[in-house]
Simulated assay, not measured.
Amino acid sequence: MLLSKGFEVEMYTGTPQGDIVGFSDQIVAELDSFVREPDNRNVEYTTPPLSCYDRLLCDLIRPRQQLRAYLKTLGDYTLIPGSTLSLGGSDRFYRSDPANPYHGYIEQTYGTTVVTASIHINIGISDPETLMRACRLVRVEAPLFLALSAASPFLDSKVTGQHSTRWSVFPKTPVHVPLFESHRHYIQWTEAQIEAGTMQNVRHLWSSVRPNGDRRPYNLNRLELRICDLMTDPIALLAVTALLEARILQCIEDPSLDPLSISLFPSNSRSQDLVAIADANEMSAAKSSLDAPLRHWRDGHILSARDWIEQLYQEVLPTAKKNGFGCFLLPLRKILRDGNEAQRWLSLYQQGLSPRQIFVQAIQDLEEQERELASKLCHPLVA
Rank of each mutant, 00 (worst) to 15 (best):
E10I: 11
P16A: 12
L31I: 07
V35T: 15
P38N: 12
N40I: 15
V43R: 13
V43C: 15
C58I: 09
Q65R: 14
A69N: 09
L71K: 05
K72C: 09
K72T: 12
T78Y: 12
T84Y: 03
L85G: 02
F93C: 05
F93R: 00
S96C: 00
G104K: 06
Y105K: 02
E107F: 06
Q108P: 07
T109H: 07
G111E: 01
G124Y: 07
S126D: 14
P128N: 12
L131G: 11
C135R: 14
L144N: 05
L148E: 03
K158L: 11
G161Y: 04
T165S: 03
V177W: 02
V177S: 06
H185I: 03
E191G: 05
T198K: 11
Q200N: 10
N221E: 07
R222G: 08
M231Q: 13
A242K: 09
I248A: 06
I248V: 15
C251L: 00
E253N: 11
I262H: 08
I262E: 06
Q272Y: 01
D273W: 01
E282N: 02
K287G: 00
S288C: 04
R295V: 14
R295H: 04
W297K: 10
A305K: 06
R306S: 13
W308P: 01
V316E: 03
K321Q: 13
G324F: 13
L330T: 07
N340F: 01
E341C: 01
Q343S: 04
S347D: 05
G352E: 00
R356G: 02
Q357E: 14
Q357G: 09
F359P: 02
L373I: 13
A374Y: 06
